[in-house]
Write a protein that binds this DNA or RNA. Structure first.
Lengths: 214, 214
DNA sequence: GGGGTTAGCATTGTCGACAATCTACCCATT
DNA sequence: AATGGGTAGATTGTCGACAATGCTAACCCC
């Protein structure tokens, strides 16, 4: 039963803009290194430059945009070192999320992740495969119910998308790594912290190798 | 030999403003729950409302300010759950930082931390003790040379300061926990990952207990 | 006394204008 | 050919003004 009568959740314009830009960056519409011209972008988004600048300050704070005074804002251009650092951060976040899940009701969490794995198995084509992989990790962090881990994760996931997009002709994401994710979900379900850690770490190491080999 | 001839690093006004506000929040000048009035604050900072709003969007993104549309921006008010979440995030970051250090030249890093511990031993009074403790953890993450961990850490350290300030009459920071930090620095110097993890985790658990018992 | 309505004021959100800065191009000089 | 100076145009940074919104106090009615 859909509730139509409920408190309005009014999102601020800069927040909406930041979300749109974050998606555009993650999906390659705004390319790494690209300068975001305020006048052009504001016209396209149908807002004035003020709120656009505000939205872009949010992305600057999270590192997706680089602000250079008097010269403008640029989409971050991820070097191989950046990729490694990003995965280091991602590993920190996801391991902490897993640990929190394991400290609580890990069995239902494992089930929820197994549901995501079942969806993964249906993914076809590079874009769907990448997104399915990301969806698993997003769900993992979401299940930890930690606002701070979730917020930090949002940024690194956008960066992950950027990397995949930048390499979409060389990045071999055509193989769904369902079994790897299933093993992780099962380890979480059964509450085995050591195995979870090992699986997550190996997963990240593998991703780093694939994204930095060019 | 000091280099005077070097590229100017011109920091943007919103960035300067965000830094100032971050410090004011961490040191209790801007109290938890407090509304930040734009006109008043802009006048005090000597800028117009535009750049102030931009700076505040940065802090909103990192969670130090809560933006409610049409009602204004408020300094985050940390509940006990927030404190636990903040330490969860901090533990994730610092453990990852330690792990990275241990994967590299951990002996000089241990020495650098022991230098900080020596400074800690000289701290007197609650404010100095808290700051000395924080300085150790900041240095730890800095030594990992990870831009992302450092950026994320900045936020949780500000939140840590907020908590300490909010509780400064009940928070017993009069005892310098030098030995605890020294043990951690020694473990890093010697390259013992299991011990480092244990010490860091225990350190965080202790801090949580102290900050959430009211 | 309590509840509802309305007006006024304070504050926030956005806009367009103007100043400041940077970049690219052209011309003159060596 | 290389270097330096000047200029125009594009873009960024900031400002003040105006519109929109929310809060509070006053007033009226039951």
């Amino acid at each position: 039963m859909t509730n139509y009568i409920e408190p309005l959740a009014q999102e601020s314009t800069p927040s909406i803009i930041a979300d749109k830009l974050r998606k555009a960056i993650g999906h390659g519409e705004l390319k790494p290194g690209m300068q975001l011209g305020e006048a052009d972008l504001a016209r396209k988004l149908g807002v004035s430059r003020g709120p656009l600048r505000e939205g872009m300050q949010r992305l600057t704070q999270e590192g997706l945009l680089i602000a250079i005074r008097n010269r403008g804002l640029f989409v971050v251009d991820m070097t191989p070192d950046d990729v490694r650092d990003m995965y280091l951060a991602r590993e920190a976040i996801e391991r902490a999320a897993a640990r929190k899940i394991l400290a609580g009701d890990h069995a239902p969490a494992g089930d929820a992740l197994l549901t995501v794995v079942a969806q993964m198995a249906k993914a076809t084509g590079p874009a769907e495969v990448s997104e399915a992989d990301i969806a698993f990790h997003e769900r993992l962090v979401e299940l930890a119910a930690s606002p701070r881990l979730s917020r930090m994760h949002q940024t690194v996931i956008t960066e992950t998308r950027m990397c995949i997009h930048a390499l979409e002709e060389t990045y071999s994401a055509s193989e769904v790594r369902v079994e790897e994710h299933r093993a992780l979900a099962e380890a979480i379900k059964s509450g085995d912290p050591t195995l979870v850690d090992q699986l997550l770490t190996a997963h990240m190491d593998d991703a780093i190798a694939r994204l930095t080999t060019r």
